[in-house]
Amino acid sequence: TTVVVGNKKYTFDNPEAAEKFAKKVAKKLGATVHKTNGTFKVK
Rank of each mutant, 00 (worst) to 15 (best):
T1R: 06
T1L: 06
T1K: 06
T1W: 15
T1Y: 13
T1M: 08
T1N: 09
T1D: 05
T1I: 09
T1E: 03
T2D: 10
T2R: 08
T2S: 10
T2V: 13
T2M: 12
T2A: 09
T2K: 09
V3Y: 00
V3L: 02
V3P: 00
V3K: 00
V3E: 00
V3H: 00
V3G: 00
V3T: 02
V3Q: 01
V4M: 11
V4P: 00
V4L: 13
V4K: 06
V4E: 14
V4N: 06
V4I: 14
V4G: 03
V4F: 13
V4R: 06
V4D: 05
V5E: 01
V5M: 04
V5N: 01
V5Y: 04
V5Q: 01
V5K: 01
V5L: 06
V5H: 03
V5D: 00
G6Y: 12
G6E: 04
G6M: 08
G6N: 06
G6I: 06
G6P: 01
G6K: 05
G6Q: 05
G6H: 08
G6L: 07
N7K: 12
N7G: 07
N7Q: 11
N7S: 12
N7W: 11
N7R: 13
N7M: 10
N7H: 11
N7E: 09
N7D: 07
N7F: 08
N7Y: 10
K8T: 08
K8F: 11
K8E: 07
K8D: 05
K8M: 12
K8N: 08
K8S: 08
K8I: 08
K8L: 09
K8P: 01
K8R: 13
K9W: 11
K9V: 13
K9S: 11
K9M: 10
K9L: 10
K9P: 05
Y10Q: 02
Y10W: 14
Y10N: 02
Y10F: 12
Y10C: 06
Y10P: 00
Y10I: 05
Y10T: 03
Y10R: 03
Y10K: 03
Y10S: 02
Y10V: 04
T11V: 13
T11F: 14
T11N: 10
T11D: 08
T11M: 14
T11A: 08
T11P: 07
T11G: 06
T11I: 14
T11Y: 15
T11S: 09
F12G: 00
F12H: 02
F12S: 00
F12Y: 04
F12A: 00
F12N: 00
F12M: 02
F12C: 04
F12T: 00
F12V: 01
D13T: 13
D13L: 10
D13R: 09
D13M: 11
D13W: 09
D13I: 11
D13G: 11
D13F: 10
D13S: 12
N14T: 10
N14A: 07
N14G: 07
N14L: 08
N14R: 07
N14H: 08
N14I: 07
N14Q: 07
N14F: 07
P15L: 10
P15G: 08
P15V: 11
P15C: 13
P15E: 13
P15R: 08
P15S: 10
P15T: 09
P15N: 08
P15H: 09
P15M: 12
P15Y: 14
P15D: 08
E16I: 14
E16D: 12
E16T: 09
E16Q: 13
E16A: 11
E16S: 11
E16Y: 10
E16R: 11
E16N: 09
E16V: 12
E16L: 12
E16P: 05
A17C: 09
A17F: 09
A17D: 12
A17H: 09
A17V: 11
A17K: 12
A18R: 00
A18N: 00
A18C: 02
A18E: 00
A18D: 00
A18T: 01
A18V: 00
A18Q: 00
E19Q: 06
E19G: 05
E19F: 13
E19I: 07
E19L: 13
E19C: 09
E19H: 07
E19W: 13
E19Y: 13
E19N: 05
K20S: 13
K20E: 11
K20C: 12
K20L: 10
K20M: 13
K20D: 13
K20I: 11
K20T: 10
K20H: 11
K20A: 13
K20P: 01
K20Q: 11
K20R: 14
F21D: 00
F21R: 01
F21I: 02
F21C: 04
F21Q: 01
F21A: 02
F21G: 00
F21N: 00
F21S: 01
F21W: 12
F21L: 03
A22K: 01
A22Q: 00
A22D: 00
A22T: 02
A22I: 03
A22S: 03
A22C: 02
K23I: 14
K23Y: 15
K23H: 14
K23S: 08
K23D: 11
K23C: 12
K23T: 13
K24Q: 10
K24S: 12
K24V: 10
K24G: 08
K24F: 13
K24N: 10
K24C: 14
K24A: 14
K24W: 14
V25M: 08
V25F: 04
V25E: 04
V25H: 03
V25W: 09
V25R: 03
V25G: 01
V25L: 09
V25N: 02
V25K: 03
A26E: 02
A26T: 02
A26C: 02
A26P: 01
A26Y: 01
A26V: 02
A26I: 02
A26F: 01
A26M: 02
K27I: 09
K27Y: 08
K27L: 10
K27P: 02
K27S: 08
K27T: 07
K27N: 08
K27V: 08
K27Q: 10
K27F: 07
K28C: 11
K28D: 07
K28L: 14
K28G: 05
K28I: 13
K28E: 10
L29T: 05
L29I: 14
L29Q: 04
L29E: 03
L29Y: 07
L29G: 03
G30M: 05
G30L: 03
G30D: 05
G30T: 03
G30P: 01
G30H: 07
G30K: 06
A31K: 03
A31R: 04
A31E: 04
A31P: 01
A31W: 15
A31I: 05
A31H: 08
A31C: 05
A31S: 06
A31G: 15
T32I: 10
T32W: 04
T32R: 07
T32M: 07
T32S: 08
T32Y: 06
T32L: 06
V33K: 01
V33H: 02
V33I: 08
V33R: 01
V33Y: 06
V33G: 01
V33D: 01
V33F: 05
H34I: 15
H34V: 15
H34K: 08
H34M: 11
H34L: 13
H34G: 04
H34E: 15
H34T: 14
H34A: 07
H34D: 10
H34R: 06
H34W: 06
H34C: 14
H34Q: 14
K35Y: 15
K35L: 14
K35W: 14
K35I: 11
K35A: 07
K35R: 09
K35D: 05
K35S: 07
T36F: 11
T36Q: 13
T36R: 06
T36L: 10
T36M: 11
T36N: 07
T36K: 07
T36Y: 12
N37G: 12
N37D: 13
N37T: 04
N37F: 03
N37S: 05
N37Q: 06
N37Y: 03
N37H: 05
G38T: 04
G38F: 04
G38C: 06
G38N: 09
G38I: 03
G38P: 04
G38M: 04
G38Y: 04
G38Q: 05
G38L: 04
G38D: 07
G38A: 05
G38S: 05
G38H: 06
G38W: 03
T39N: 15
T39Q: 15
T39F: 14
T39C: 14
T39M: 15
T39V: 14
T39H: 15
F40Y: 09
F40P: 04
F40V: 12
F40M: 13
F40N: 05
F40Q: 05
F40K: 04
F40W: 14
F40T: 06
F40I: 15
F40L: 15
K41I: 15
K41G: 07
K41N: 14
K41A: 14
K41V: 15
V42M: 03
V42N: 02
V42K: 02
V42S: 02
V42F: 03
V42H: 02
V42T: 03
V42L: 04
K43P: 06
K43I: 15
K43D: 13
K43R: 10
K43M: 15
K43G: 14
K43A: 15
K43L: 15
K43W: 13
K43E: 15
K43Q: 14
K43N: 12
